[in-house]
Every structure is written in structure tokens, then in C-alpha cells.
Computed example of a mutant assay.
Amino acid sequence: MMRSLTYGAMGLRSKVTLAGFLLCGVAAPLKAETVHLLALGDSLTQGYGLIEQDGFVPQLRSWLADHGHDVRIVNAGVSGDTTAGGLSRVEWSLTPEIDGMIVALGGNDLLRGLPPESSRANLEGILEVAEAQEVEVLLVGMRAPGNYGPDFKATFDAMYPELSEAYGTLYYPSFFEGIVSEGEAPASAAGLMQADGIHPNAEGVSRIVEAMGPAVEELIARVGADEE
């Protein structure tokens, strides 16, 4: 009789332990999957003139990790690339695991004085590829200097928000938003630029990432919403 009672108590304890284990297993939060982003850009994205960890992509990755995001960012920045170059490689750059894309192109179009209409057509082509592959996009703008004339500047500056609205992407006004005010040239950011006056130094990149980070978080949130 005592043996039966002991066995019964042990069996009951085992069932309670198993139930508790299962309950804990159900209640435990599932680890979020890694978000895969592609940063399509030029030398600003690539990290020109900087050691690797000081570049835009590594600093952005670190910023996102510090804010609780598990993100892998593919650095698809190519020094000297124009919007045409970005268009020529976007399709094969968007490998199957890519969930979202940061597009930061146009600076070299400005340096070469290329027609804004051509830049617009190239950016539109990039967004069409992203749309066809169901990849969320953060479109990063670039502001033209005034030396090309008011019409050029107005046309160039307007293409980013207009394309963003047309394709339903997220929009960030300017890559240099974190270090210069609207109407100022990047070279005016004393102490935050490299000697060429075109590329930010490590501290400049840090401030750019700090300013842009929340917009990238919005991109991550969109990716997550698409997967639910």
C-alpha cells in the first residue's frame, strides 16, 4: 500500500514537473530571426578613406545592435558609382535572403553634372526591381549644390521624395542630415569631413548613423510587418 502511495506521489510530481516544463516552453519568447538588409550606394556607403570598422555599414550595424536589433547588412557600396551603376547591379545584389534595402545614390551624378532626368530614371528602375522582388526600401536623398542653377537643384532635390511617394518607400531627406543643415554643403561640416571635403571622417559617420538610425529602424519594422 505504501509502495502504491509512493509511486502515485512520484507520478503526480512527474506530471506536474512535465506540465511546468511544457508551460515554460510555450511561454518562452521565440528568438527573432535576423533581418537582412542591403546597403546600395557609392563611396559614402562603402566607407571610402576609413578603416573598415569606421565605415557607414559597420557603424550602422553596431548602432542597430545597441538598440536591440539583430541585423546583417550587406555593404553594396561601390566608390565612384552613379545611379546608373546602382541600377546595373541591383537585381543580382538582391539575393533571396535580403529583406530590405537602403538606397543611397546620386552624389556622383552630381559631381559629374549628369542630367537629373537620367538620375531619376535610374532610381526609378532600382525601385521597380525592389518592388518586383517585394523588398522594402529606405530611399536616402541627396541635395544638389546651387552652382548648377536653381532649376537643376529643384529638379534633382525633388526626385527623391517624389519617387518615394510613388513607390511607397520610406524616405530620408539627405545622407548628410546628421552633420549639415539644409542648404549647407557637406564641406562646411568642419572637423567632421575628410580632407577632400566630400567624405565624412569617422566622427562624421557616427553622427550620420545616429541621425539616420531611427529611419533604418522603421525599415526593419516594415520588414517585420511584412513577415507577420
Rank of each mutant, 00 (worst) to 15 (best):
residue 192 L to N: 04
residue 133 Q to F: 01
residue 30 L to R: 11
residue 219 L to F: 07
residue 72 R to N: 14
residue 60 L to I: 12
residue 69 H to V: 11
residue 178 G to V: 01
residue 228 E to G: 09
residue 28 A to I: 03
residue 125 G to I: 07
residue 71 V to Y: 14
residue 113 G to L: 13
residue 218 E to F: 00
residue 97 E to F: 01
residue 175 F to Q: 04
residue 23 L to C: 13
residue 87 L to Q: 11
residue 131 E to P: 00
residue 222 R to Y: 05
residue 211 A to I: 00
residue 62 S to Y: 01
residue 156 F to L: 08
residue 203 E to I: 07
residue 209 V to Y: 09
residue 138 L to S: 09
residue 169 T to Q: 03
residue 14 S to I: 08
residue 218 E to H: 09
residue 126 I to W: 07
residue 44 L to Y: 12
residue 71 V to C: 14
residue 112 R to G: 02
residue 68 G to W: 14
residue 180 V to N: 03
residue 97 E to N: 11
residue 52 E to K: 10
residue 95 T to D: 07
residue 58 P to V: 11
residue 119 S to H: 07
residue 187 A to L: 01
residue 24 C to T: 05
residue 38 L to E: 08
residue 108 N to G: 13
residue 210 E to A: 15
residue 192 L to V: 03
residue 135 V to A: 08
residue 210 E to S: 04
residue 137 V to Q: 06
residue 202 A to K: 02
residue 19 A to H: 03
residue 153 K to M: 09
residue 2 M to K: 00
residue 178 G to A: 05
residue 194 Q to G: 06
residue 186 P to A: 03
residue 38 L to Y: 07
residue 91 E to W: 04
residue 156 F to P: 00
residue 52 E to Q: 13
residue 14 S to P: 00
residue 179 I to S: 05
residue 48 Y to H: 12
residue 75 N to F: 12
residue 164 S to H: 05
residue 135 V to C: 08
residue 102 I to C: 07
residue 159 M to Q: 13
residue 116 P to E: 08
residue 24 C to W: 11
residue 198 I to L: 15
residue 223 V to R: 03
residue 184 E to G: 00
residue 200 P to I: 04
residue 90 V to I: 15
residue 101 M to V: 15
residue 218 E to Q: 15
residue 46 Q to T: 00
residue 129 V to K: 09
residue 169 T to C: 03
residue 132 A to I: 02
residue 125 G to H: 10
residue 42 D to F: 06
residue 123 L to I: 13
residue 39 A to V: 04
residue 78 V to M: 13
residue 43 S to I: 01
residue 106 G to K: 10
residue 195 A to E: 15
residue 185 A to K: 06
residue 47 G to S: 07
residue 25 G to A: 10
residue 110 L to G: 02
residue 194 Q to S: 06
residue 151 D to Q: 12
residue 84 A to C: 04
residue 171 Y to E: 04
residue 34 T to S: 10
residue 93 S to I: 01
residue 153 K to H: 01
residue 5 L to N: 00
residue 123 L to W: 06
residue 136 E to A: 15
residue 116 P to T: 08
residue 160 Y to G: 08
residue 215 A to H: 12
residue 115 P to Q: 13
residue 185 A to W: 00
residue 197 G to T: 06
residue 64 L to N: 13
residue 197 G to V: 05
residue 204 G to E: 02
residue 213 G to I: 02
residue 150 P to C: 02
residue 157 D to E: 08
residue 205 V to C: 08
residue 83 T to P: 09
residue 53 Q to D: 14
residue 156 F to H: 06
residue 212 M to Y: 05
residue 98 I to A: 09
residue 111 L to P: 04
residue 159 M to F: 05
residue 202 A to T: 02
residue 35 V to S: 07
residue 59 Q to I: 06
residue 169 T to E: 04
residue 73 I to T: 12
residue 51 I to V: 14
residue 226 D to R: 14
residue 162 E to M: 04
